[in-house]
Computed example of a mutant assay.
Amino acid sequence: MKVRHEFCSIAPVLDRLCPMHAVLDRHGQVVHAGPTLVKVLPDQVVVGQTVFDLFKIRRPLCDGSMLALLRLSGSKLHLSMRAPPHTDLKGVLVPLHGPQPENGCGHAVLNLSLGISVQEAVRDFSLTSGDFAVTDPTVEMLYLIEAKSAAMDASRKLNQRLQGAKVAAEEQAFTDTLTGLKNRRALDAILARLIANEQDFALLQIDLDYFKAVNDGLGHAAGDHVLQVVAAAMVDETRKVDTVARTGGDEFVIILTGVTDAAKVGDIAARLIARIKRPVTFQGQPCQISASIGAALTCDYDVPLVSRLIEDADHALYAAKHRGRGRYVVFNPRDGLD
């Protein structure tokens, strides 16, 4: 009775100083468990089980008896939970009433620690600083983990914002602000990539006819509106794999990826010309324009060069204009203009 009375008086002290402990009787049965120990063994009734039912003692070797365990009192014990997730623990056993006699009578306290498993245990068992003694170094480690987690979260959010800003800046750098099409810089990068990958394509140089008359007669607002309508029409008449770029005031370039048939290029050019020729209304006033197109195909060259393609497509464009505007010409490097 004396042992039981003294134990009852120190139980609250043990719960505060070492909340992850178990008080064992002389048979190794748990007669009291600290609040943190109960928390990390939520699916088990801890009190009433033996220490050997709850934990596997890995080092030092023990034959599974309380007498053998008492002989290890004061030594560092390496244990693991028998229940999932089989968390590794460190521990030390201390008799409550000094050295035990050989028959192992009396109570003992097994104080446990999570050791290097603390981070996983905090996650697995939802532990907080309140589950540890205030003097436990683990509390400081929890603060470090929380601080690291907060810092990583802030860093991740900052990186996301920076990445978003970078993408926005890159898009702005490669986008024509008026039409939303690719600009000259983007076109140069796309052409270089296609040539490097030895991928065939058709290059169409497009120039708007009579656009200056719109600007002079109705003002730049009308001209901007016409450019936006024309840009939308070009996007509608091409595929997602194609590229539509505005390279100057009323100058555009279309890259038809994978196209090697001059007749198909002609069909697309004719469709574009017909679409652009439709009158555009601005503030009730009709804006009448047309388009001249010159084209060159990489498949017509033994060694296609961007500069040569652009130059030949440009020659074809001016040939289309000289032939009356509102038409297309496909350049043939072997025979000249078609």
Rank of each mutant, 00 (worst) to 15 (best):
4 R>K: 10
12 P>K: 12
12 P>D: 06
22 A>V: 14
28 G>W: 07
28 G>Y: 01
34 G>S: 04
36 T>P: 06
37 L>E: 09
39 K>I: 00
53 D>G: 02
54 L>M: 05
58 R>F: 02
61 L>F: 15
62 C>F: 07
64 G>M: 11
67 L>Y: 05
78 H>L: 15
87 T>A: 11
87 T>K: 12
87 T>E: 13
88 D>C: 11
90 K>A: 03
92 V>P: 00
94 V>Y: 08
107 H>L: 15
112 L>F: 06
113 S>D: 15
114 L>F: 15
119 Q>N: 06
119 Q>M: 12
119 Q>E: 11
124 D>S: 09
126 S>E: 09
128 T>N: 03
131 D>R: 08
132 F>K: 05
134 V>E: 13
136 D>W: 12
139 V>D: 02
141 M>A: 11
141 M>V: 13
146 E>P: 03
149 S>G: 07
149 S>R: 13
153 D>I: 02
162 L>Q: 04
166 K>A: 14
167 V>H: 07
168 A>Q: 14
169 A>L: 15
171 E>W: 06
175 T>D: 04
175 T>G: 08
179 T>A: 08
180 G>L: 00
182 K>N: 07
182 K>M: 06
185 R>Y: 02
189 A>K: 13
192 A>L: 06
194 L>T: 01
196 A>I: 00
204 L>R: 13
205 Q>G: 01
215 N>F: 05
216 D>T: 02
219 G>M: 08
220 H>C: 07
221 A>K: 14
221 A>E: 15
222 A>M: 04
223 G>A: 09
223 G>V: 10
225 H>V: 00
236 D>H: 14
238 T>C: 14
239 R>E: 10
240 K>C: 04
241 V>F: 07
248 G>D: 00
251 E>H: 04
251 E>Y: 03
256 L>F: 06
259 V>K: 08
268 I>T: 15
268 I>P: 03
270 A>G: 07
271 R>H: 12
273 I>A: 02
274 A>D: 13
278 R>F: 04
282 F>H: 11
282 F>T: 00
282 F>Y: 13
285 Q>T: 02
286 P>V: 00
289 I>P: 03
291 A>Y: 01
294 G>I: 03
296 A>H: 03
296 A>P: 08
312 D>W: 00
313 A>R: 04
313 A>W: 08
317 L>H: 04
321 K>M: 09
324 G>A: 07
328 Y>L: 04
329 V>C: 15
333 P>H: 06
333 P>M: 00
